[in-house]
Structure formats: structure tokens, C-alpha cells
């Protein structure tokens, strides 16, 4: 069998695809969160960061297409594996349902996955495409003028005085709606829960987990998910608490 056939056709191959695409997506959500936490700094930071990403041009599309492929493979493998799993139980289910030690997170992966997928669609419509809350979408807000250079690894990539999209105000406006903010908080909460199983499960699938460090791995997974959730809670939480305000309002009160 050629290696592509092995990955896509065998049970373990599909599991490895789940694990690898899951690892890629974990890497993405961490980077995405770290980038977005710049909202707690001067508006120059997140607006300069957004401008920098857009300046990447073709590279940005390579990343976007790569992520889309990862998401599609992750969902495809999950669907195929789940359908096989259902058939494997046979025609008659157990009359007495019992779980010995499978965690709640592991038993709700499909449900949390659905919520995360719905969230991704909304999130893209909200902050990337402007289909939701279009009145405060970055393209419809006044441009932001960079006060200082935005530097990546010491290299100034966005010069002071550049007119850029006001992502800072778009996010602040967006989360001023409690319904939107709460939906984000619930969705990233369930994503964190999804990752609680995914994070240490991928080590098992790739064959790197043994009992000698399984406890440490689990602790790392729990710590990672708590930190990830806390970081994601901070952004809509700060807007709801009035700590982060849209720029026009902030300027007026200053």
C-alpha cells in the first residue's frame, strides 16, 4: 500500500490523521490567542498585528488554505471513524449502559466538535467576512493611524502613520453585545473541553504516551486547557467589564 492509501484507508492511519490535524489546529488556536491578547496593550499593537498578517499576502492564503485542509481532514476522519464505530457495536446496543473510566470530555467529543464548528463559522462571519454585526466590521469603521511602528522580531513591519483597519474597536464593539460575548465564552469553553481529550489523546495515537509520564501529560493537558480558556475568557470578559472600550469612546472619555 502506498503511504497515502495507508493514512486514508486504515483505522490507525485515519487516527494518525486526526492526531496530526488536531495538533496543527491546537498550534493555530494557541498562536491566534497569543496574537489577540495584544488587545490588552495599546491599539497600535493589535491593529499593527492585523495589518502585518494582511501584508503577508500569498503567505496568508497558504496558511488559510492549510488550516482549511486540516479542518476538513479532521472532520472527515472523525465522521468516517464515528460511522464505523457505530456499526461496530452491532445491531443490539447494551441494555445496561456503564462507563468504567472514560472521561466526560472524551465521551462528548462529537457534541463539543459540533459547537466548535458552528463557532468557527460564526467567528469567520463576524471578524473576517463582516457578515455578522456588519455595522462595526473593520471595513466599515474609520481607519486607524498607527502612532508608532509595529515590529515583529525587531523588524518594523508596519510604519508609524500608516492607515490600517481598526481591529481593536471592531472587537470591542463586537463584545459589547452580551449575547455575542457569552456565545464566544461558551464556545471557547467547549473548545477547551474538546482539547482536554484531544491534547493527551494525540500523544497516545502517535505512540508517544506511556504510563511512565501519562500523569504528567494529563496534568499538562489540564493546565493547557485552563490557561487557554482563561486567555479566551479575558478578551470578551474585559470588554463586558468595560476595561476594553472601542477607540472612539475611549478617546471621548480621555
Amino acid at each position: 500500500m502506498n503511504p497515502v492509501g495507508f493514512f486514508f484507508r486504515s483505522s490507525i492511519g485515519r487516527k494518525i490523521l486526526m492526531a496530526v490535524t488536531g495538533a496543527i489546529l491546537i498550534g493555530f488556536v494557541v498562536g491566534h490567542l497569543v496574537g489577540n491578547l495584544q488587545i490588552f496593550s495599546h491599539p497600535d499593537k493589535i491593529n499593527g498585528y492585523a495589518q502585518f498578517l494582511h501584508q503577508l499576502g500569498p503567505l496568508l492564503w497558504v496558511a488559510r488554505i492549510g488550516l482549511l485542509v486540516a479542518v476538513v481532514i479532521h472532520i472527515w476522519a472523525a465522521t468516517v471513524l464515528t460511522l464505523e464505530n457505530r456499526r461496530a457495536r452491532g445491531p443490539v446496543p447494551y441494555g445496561f449502559k456503564h462507563t468504567i473510566r472514560a472521561t466526560l470530555a472524551s465521551r462528548t467529543m462529537r457534541l463539543t466538535g459540533y459547537v466548535v464548528l458552528a463557532f468557527i463559522v460564526y467567528h469567520l462571519a463576524h471578524f473576517t467576512l463582516g457578515a455578522a454585526q456588519s455595522g462595526t466590521f473593520k471595513a466599515n469603521l474609520p481607519k486607524y493611524t498607527m502612532a508608532q511602528d509595529y515590529a515583529v522580531a525587531g523588524f518594523p513591519v508596519v510604519k508609524a502613520g500608516t492607515q490600517v483597519d481598526d481591529v481593536y474597536s471592531m472587537v470591542a464593539h463586537g463584545f459589547q453585545s452580551p449575547a455575542v460575548a457569552i456565545f464566544y465564552i461558551v464556545a471557547v469553553g467547549l473548545l477547551s473541553f474538546h482539547l482536554l481529550h484531544g491534547f493527551d489523546s494525540l500523544f497516545q495515537t502517535l505512540g508517544w504516551r506511556t504510563h511512565r509520564w501519562a500523569g504528567a501529560l494529563r496534568a499538562a493537558a489540564v493546565a493547557f486547557c485552563l490557561a487557554y480558556f482563561a486567555g479566551n475568557l479575558a478578551i470578551p470578559g474585559a470588554v463586558l467589564a468595560g476595561k476594553v472600550k472601542p477607540r472612539a469612546v475611549a478617546a471621548a472619555t480621555r
Binding site: 486504515s10 483505522s11 485515519r14 487516527k15 471513524l81 464505523e84 464505530n85 456499526r87 461496530a88 457495536r89 462507563t99 468504567i100 473510566r101 472514560a102 472521561t103 472524551s106 465521551r107 467529543m109 481529550h197 493527551d200 489523546s201 497516545q204 495515537t205
Partner: peptide
């Protein structure tokens, strides 16, 4: 490969 052909399910690392 034989395990797959016989219609067993796939591991979800739940350790039951």
C-alpha cells in the same frame, strides 16, 4: 488490516 476488515471499531483513547 484483518482487524479493520472484520468490522471492529476504532480506538478513541478512552481506556475502557
Amino acid at each position: 488490516s484483518t482487524m479493520d476488515e472484520l468490522g471492529f471499531g476504532n480506538c478513541t483513547n478512552q481506556y475502557e
